[in-house]
Design a protein around this nucleic acid. Structure first.
Lengths: 247, 247
DNA sequence: CCAATCGTTTCACCCAATGAAACCGTGGTA
DNA sequence: TACCACGGTTTCATTGGGTGAAACGATTGG
């Protein structure tokens, strides 16, 4: 098993430490050391480095570690003017007002999907959708869209990836993706989360490349299968309109 | 000059590479190598590591490096429910509507200040204030507030820091800070940026500790010195109201 | 007062990060 | 077509620096 690493171990470890903060915002040194499986002193040194550069900070009261404002600074530079999350925001708000449900935008990032933009429904019972959330790429309407309309090589690589959950029958899944490709959209009903449902449609840029999945989601008692079927065309045409706004 | 480094060099370098993206969103390998003063191959390895963990990604078209979505993911976990940037947003919007100008919230982060929240004026000519921006701690109304109301040790440490610009007379500056502490707010008129002016007031938490500076900023022809003097009480009392919302 | 726990510092060993140089791929130019 | 210039990539010998065991302090609480 020659791993052919051309990466820097210390940096990998430091980034793993940073990624601890994607689950739980406050950590003690020992907790982190345990979590990443390294010695206390090693983690201590890594944290000192991260702290010096402002990537983590210490809570004054608890003395525990938390994310630093350098993260905020970097994230401010994440969006360019041609970023879908910016360009499509207006259209997303329009769709939210039209359907009254939360609208999200997902892109594929390696083997996950990431919510890069969201506008919340204004109803009392609504789907809350934090921007930046990283979700699995095998369940949920948007996952299926991102797979169904991906380039075939990409799709096959993901389906045959060792990380793909063994509990899902690949053949049946592939068949479902083909149906979605045919229909032009996907739905999910209490698939990833109980009580939630969603409609999702692909957004292609001018050269026909899949760039994102547009998703409308809400409580499953409002978004019943029938309602979703009825509203799907609105989502699909919104996605088409959005595609035209991209480069 | 014993530097007593208890940090990890490779990690420091990797973070420096990341920080390149705070000025300019797209970089080639050679550019970065030049900027951080390291060999191409070293930077290549660091970038490969950052890329593997999703902290940077490559633009498909240009093949250049850009920030990855892991940054977005982390930034989503930056704000806790008790974060001033969240808790005070409502009050900030109220103040924006009252005065019609852009309202920002700054905290001190080491030797800089960082804009952690902002709501834009809705006028045609307005101050635009991106969240996450890192600004110097010696010019601008909020800087002066963050210094004037800081704990004395902190203030003195900063004023006598070698990084403090020699062009500013420390004694005169200290005098100005004392006046600000007396008045309870600070103003700036075309101080950091030509054509811009601002009023800023301190926000203290329940235990009397300075946590942020509230700032109202706009074009200097609207926010003339007279107008600012007249509006200062509104900013100060808004800041006081906000303080009451904090822990 | 002691025990437990957490963060910090020290230190010798030896792995792994480093940068020079060579290599490869691409686009532009004569 | 041949050539060059300029990006990114890979290789490799050298040794600096990252590593973890262990000892140390500082708190906490029973």
């Amino acid at each position: 098993m020659e791993d052919e690493k051309r990466t820097v171990r210390a940096v990998e470890r430091a980034l793993d430490v940073l990624l601890c903060f994607t689950s739980g915002s406050e950590w003690g040194l020992t907790d982190i050391a345990q979590r990443v499986g390294l010695h206390k002193s090693t983690v201590h040194r890594l944290l000192a480095t991260l702290e010096e550069k402002g990537f983590v900070a210490r809570d004054e009261a608890t003395d525990k570690y938390r994310l630093g404002l350098r993260i905020l600074e970097l994230s401010a530079h994440l969006t360019r003017s041609d970023d879908p999350a910016v360009v499509l925001l207006g259209e997303m708000e329009r769709l939210r007002d039209q359907l009254g449900e939360t609208v999200s935008l997902y892109v594929r990032d390696r083997k996950d999907r990431v919510r890069i933009q969201a506008v919340q429904s204004e109803q009392a019972i609504r789907r809350v959708a934090p921007v930046g959330a990283r979700l699995p790429l095998f369940v949920g309407a948007s996952s299926k869209v991102l797979l169904a309309f991906a380039e075939p090589e990409v799709r096959e690589a993901l389906l045959s990836d060792p990380a793909w959950p063994a509990s899902i029958d690949v053949e049946a899944y592939r068949k479902q993706l083909a149906e979605i490709a045919e229909a032009g959209y996907a739905t999910s009903y209490e698939e990833r989360e109980a009580g939630a449902a969603a409609i999702s449609a692909p957004i292609f840029n001018r050269s026909g490349k899949l760039v994102a999945a547009l998703s409308v989601s809400g409580p499953s008692n409002r978004l019943t299968p029938d309602v979703m079927r009825e509203r799907a065309p609105a989502v699909v045409s919104a996605a088409k309109r959005m595609g035209a706004l991209l480069g």
